[in-house]
Write a protein that binds this DNA or RNA. Structure first.
Lengths: 141, 141
DNA sequence: TTACATCCTGTACTACGGTACGGAATCAAG
DNA sequence: CTTGATTCCGTACCGTAGTACAGGATGTAA
């Protein structure tokens, strides 16, 4: 396999050239070797590394966390259990986010119900948003 | 009710003084009247307005969207149905976010399972993250 | 009156994940 | 050899939701 230029790596990994430079700055990519004229020369392995980064992003990891994952991988004293732990944490975070969103949804649905019950009157939705919680919203049932 | 100074309004609405100035700049608060020396003088209604903003933020609206909601409220030609529509949109957005998070969770759980199945071997989790999708991950069942 | 608190303005800075741009150098194709 | 594409670097900018700060002007309490 040949080494890749910045542009080639960018194309193959479906990211912007500037993004590669940004990842390098942020320590997500190792400093590549350079040609005599100073141009970057990337190992083809970097395609997989960027796929890793993008996939992990999709999975809800921040670049900072991904950097940690990548350094875990580089450290031979790290066990599979260490990685498992990070993933379990991430799953819990996701559960929390989902629960928060569902609570918000419930509140919004409640506001909708209020509106249904007040067809011809002034819209109570916006006023209800002013309340601390929306319990005191509707004319009872 | 007396008019409030910036500091009083900030205290009563539990936000930072700078946040009030920021909201004013962003058009979320109307330009308050001023004292002779140039100090802001807020109507006590602004406490409710900021509560509205904060509550709507909790419900997942951005400041931009909140600004729209506030202007809806100010416009007498806007019907309750218009507001309902915004809320329905928001509910759909939330559903999408939840579904995305649950898909992520599933993928992470799958990675955990893989790790369970490979107790003594090299940790396959990180390598699996490199895959486009994680179907090809585990030793079958 | 003196001291301290609050307020004013404008600007800069934070985090996040990049994107855009200018000007110079270099590379590859015709 | 010339032209156009690519790459280089540093820096500035985007949106989001604020926070921080400098330096000056007021307001208030002892």
């Amino acid at each position: 396999m040949k080494e890749l230029t910045t542009g080639q790596l960018a194309k193959q990994s479906h990211v912007n050239v500037e993004t590669l430079r940004y990842y390098e700055r942020e320590g997500l990519l190792p400093e590549p070797s350079r040609s005599e004229s100073g141009r970057r020369s990337f190992s083809p392995d970097m395609v997989a590394r960027i796929r890793f980064i993008k996939r992990a992003q999709e999975l809800g990891f921040t670049l900072k966390e991904i950097k940690e994952l990548l350094s875990l991988r580089a450290d031979p004293s790290v066990t599979c259990a260490d990685v498992m732990e990070q993933i379990q944490e991430k799953i819990q975070e996701i559960d929390q986010k989902v629960n928060h969103l569902l609570a918000i949804k419930k509140a919004l649905e409640h506001l909708s119900t209020c509106a249904d019950l007040n067809p011809a009157s002034e819209c109570p939705i916006l006023e209800n948003l002013s309340f601390e919680r929306s319990e005191a919203c509707c004319k009872e049932s």
